[in-house]
Amino acid sequence: MNSSRPSAQHLAGIARRIRRRDLDMIYEAGAGHLGSELSCTDLLVALYFGELQVDPDEPSAPTRDRFVLSKGHAAGVLYVTLAEAGFIDPAELATFMQPGSRLNGHPDRKLVPGVETNTGPLGHGLPVAVGMAKAAKLRGESWRTWVLTGDGELQEGSNWEAAMAAAHFGLDNLALVIDHNRFQQGAAVADTNDLAPLADKWRAFGWHLHELDGHDFDAIFAGFDVARSTRGRPTCLIAHTNKGEGISFTRDRVAWHHRVPTAEEYAQARAELTEVPS
């Protein structure tokens, strides 16, 4: 994939478009997790437009790469990304969280093409991803598994069960990307149940650890390359991100975990996301 990766500038344009549509969608639906979605938007863009071997025309191809969004509350930005990538009709985004829509507040693999597993309760994605990577090993297939978790959700013990297993099974076809935006629903992670020293924890659990700037496409791809070239153990990429990234007044503000903007706030946010940075 390396040689055919789009430029950072091109991806930044896609990311801006996705943030804009995500903002619109949450404003229209009157619900969603804006802050959590803006923090992982660039990571999703890098995955879907520069890394994952997936095909919207054959979303269940047996040897596709698997991507698991463990922080299922960021479903909105996943749907916008899947629409941008051709998995679902962009017009359908208008139905987000509306009665009868398949675009639930948390993703359902049975209904939405491109969704690999149902998430919502936290701490579910990593164990499932470990199973996927183990399946590829058992089958002798070369597809890879990518899983994106939040940081707060690492307080769930199931992650650490899975972390041990992934290292024990030597799953070098598995990469975990942690959207380390430092905030959970109610407060800073550090003030709730601190994860620090996070990098040391993953190293101690037998993972190859790499840290990167989760809003810098070149840095993200460098991290993906680290994951691809690591042998004998899984890779954990700690992506340093900002909750609410892309809108000045939501950035690093815990209140925006799942707040819906007022009309005034919406107008300002829309204007910020429309300006093309020089």
């Binding site: 183990k134 590829a136 041990m164 297993a165």
Partner: peptide, 22 residues
């Protein structure tokens, strides 16, 4: 596949193994 004494991972992994064709 013996995951050790870890039932949440046991069942989660099984779902992933099934997704992967097992």
């Amino acid at each position: 596949v013996n995951v050790g004494i870890a039932e949440q991972n046991l069942v989660g992994m099984a779902a992933g193994l099934a997704n992967g064709g097992m």
